[in-house]
Structures are given as structure tokens and as C-alpha cells.
């Protein structure tokens, strides 16, 4: 191949140029995968058993039983709704000052870093982990769940709202400051109108999330419909579990639909 123009075959250059290294990587990966798979204990009898149990569950899901445990289900749902509403309202209310503090263009830097640190802490840990902590601190029941979801809501709302505050049109703030308005008046007149649609949208979105979370944190003992669901599984009452799951799906879908409707209106 003396002349480049005469070449008639071409294949893409390999990802790893050195063939020794290339093959070492491929063979090494294959050996590791084989050993790793062997290290996981696989109990085929248990899997077969589980398959039939899974089938029972699917059957229960197809024949949901809303009636036999209707009192517990109703109580659980009510508890979840209360948890959702209280923690959303509380979370949003507490998120407002944190969001203002975490917006670079509003807050002085010590406040900014403090609020950002709080947001980071709230967002680092999954709700379930925080729920376990709060259950350990305050005992089983919806109070721990409410605290968990409130805490998570603050982090979520404050972070997204702070970003929105940082994106506002600065000239409007300048104009209000130029009239001799105080800091609080500037927030009320120049910042609030600019971020209000986003605040409403995020709060409604958080309502759906919080309802779903209230089902999850119940499993670690923090009350709500999750606790009822967990009990149903423990008693092998798959029809009841199926009914609960269907109710959760229905409520989440209803929440999502209405929040979408309202969000479109406030823009």
C-alpha cells in the first residue's frame, strides 16, 4: 500500500490500540463476570417457589379485594392524605426562606452557603433513609413520615425555586429598588411576581411526589397507606395488597391530572 489512494479495505481503528492490552481486558472482564455470578447464591428451588408466589400476587392484583380490610385501607389512605397535605404545606412554607437565602442574587454569601448546605443535606439522602432515622428518633407512626416528607420537600422546593430566583429579570428588581422600596417590599413586588407561577407549579408537582413518598416511607414504619400495604404483604393477603396498589395508582393519576390542569392555567 504505497499509495494511499489505492487502498480498498478499511476497518475502524480499535478502541484500545495495543492488542495485548485489548485482549487482556476482554478476557479479564469475562473471568470476573463468571466469578461474580458464582458468588451470588442462587437457590433454584426458592426461585421456583417464588415464581408461584409471584403468580399468586398477580392473581391477587387481578382480583383486588377492597372489602375485607376496607377499614384499615381507609384509615391508611386518610393518614397518607393528611401526611401529604401537611408536609407539602409545611415544606413549601419552610422552603420559601431557604430558597431566598440560596439565591446568589438575593442573599449575602454566608447565608447563601448556609442555605445551599442545608439543601445539599436534604437532597443527599433518599427519603427512606431519612424515614428510618426519624422512626428511630420519634417512634413508629405518621409523625416520623410527615417529618421525613417535609424535610425532603424543603430541599426539593428550595433548590428549584432558588434557581428560578437566580434567573429573574434583574432590571425589574432594580426599578423597584430605585423607588426607595425596602428589601421585603422588593421581594414582594419584584421577585414574587416573577417566580409565583413556578412556585405554584412546583408545589402541585410536589403533592403527587409526596403522596407516593407517603406510601414508600410507610414500609419502614412511618405510617400511612405504606404501612397498610406492608401489613397486607406480611399476611400474604395479595388481593388486599392489589387493591391498595390500585388505589395508589388511581390517586397518583388523579393528582397528576389535576395538577397539570392547574399548572397550565397559572402560566
Amino acid at each position: 500500500m504505497a499509495v494511499a489512494g489505492a487502498r480498498r479495505s478499511w476497518s475502524p481503528p480499535p478502541l484500545i490500540a495495543n492488542p495485548w492490552l485489548r485482549w487482556a481486558v476482554v478476557i479479564g472482564a469475562a473471568i470476573y463476570l463468571y466469578l461474580a455470578l458464582n458468588s451470588v447464591p442462587l437457590n433454584w428451588a426458592r426461585i421456583l417457589d417464588g415464581l408461584s408466589r409471584g403468580w399468586l400476587f398477580v392473581k391477587g392484583f387481578l382480583t383486588p379485594d377492597f372489602v375485607s380490610r376496607h377499614e384499615e385501607i381507609f384509615e391508611g389512605l386518610l393518614e397518607s392524605v393528611v401526611m401529604t397535605v401537611v408536609s407539602t404545606v409545611l415544606g413549601v412554607a419552610l422552603a420559601l426562606p431557604v430558597a431566598l437565602g440560596a439565591a446568589k442574587n438575593v442573599a449575602p454569601w454566608p447565608v447563601y452557603y448556609l442555605c445551599r448546605a442545608f439543601i445539599a443535606a436534604s437532597r443527599t439522602f433518599q427519603e427512606v433513609i431519612i424515614a428510618i432515622l426519624f422512626v428511630a428518633m420519634f417512634g413508629f407512626g405518621p409523625f416520623a413520615g410527615m417529618l421525613t416528607i417535609t424535610f425532603a420537600t424543603i430541599g426539593f422546593m428550595a433548590k428549584l425555586l432558588a434557581e428560578d430566583i437566580e434567573d429573574i429579570d434583574r432590571s425589574q428588581v432594580e426599578a423597584i429598588r430605585a423607588t426607595g422600596a425596602s428589601w421585603a417590599q422588593t421581594v414582594n413586588y419584584a421577585i414574587q411576581p416573577q417566580v409565583l407561577p413556578r412556585l405554584i407549579g412546583l408545589s402541585l408537582y410536589r403533592v403527587d411526589i409526596n403522596f407516593r413518598e407517603s406510601a414508600v416511607v410507610g414500609i419502614v414504619g412511618a405510617g400511612g397507606i405504606g404501612a397498610t400495604l406492608n401489613t397486607a404483604f406480611d399476611r400474604y393477603e395479595y388481593s388486599v395488597a392489589g387493591a391498595i396498589l390500585l388505589l395508589i395508582i388511581g390517586i397518583v393519576m388523579a393528582c397528576e391530572y389535576t395538577s397539570g390542569l392547574i399548572r397550565r392555567r397559572v402560566q
Binding site: E174, A175, A181, S182, Q185, A190, P193
Partner: peptide
């Protein structure tokens, strides 16, 4: 530099913010 989502009257009255207290505004 009007506050776009406020009404014309609210924008006008914002000129009085230096004269009135927070709760009034």
C-alpha cells in the same frame, strides 16, 4: 423595567413603596 406580571396600577403604585409600610404594600 415594569414588573411584567403585575397590573398597570400595581406598577404605578410601586412608585409609592418608599412612602408606605410593608404590610400596607
Amino acid at each position: 423595567a415594569l414588573v411584567e406580571r403585575l397590573s398597570v396600577m400595581e406598577n404605578l403604585l410601586s412608585g409609592r413603596l418608599g412612602y408606605v409600610g410593608f404590610w400596607r404594600s
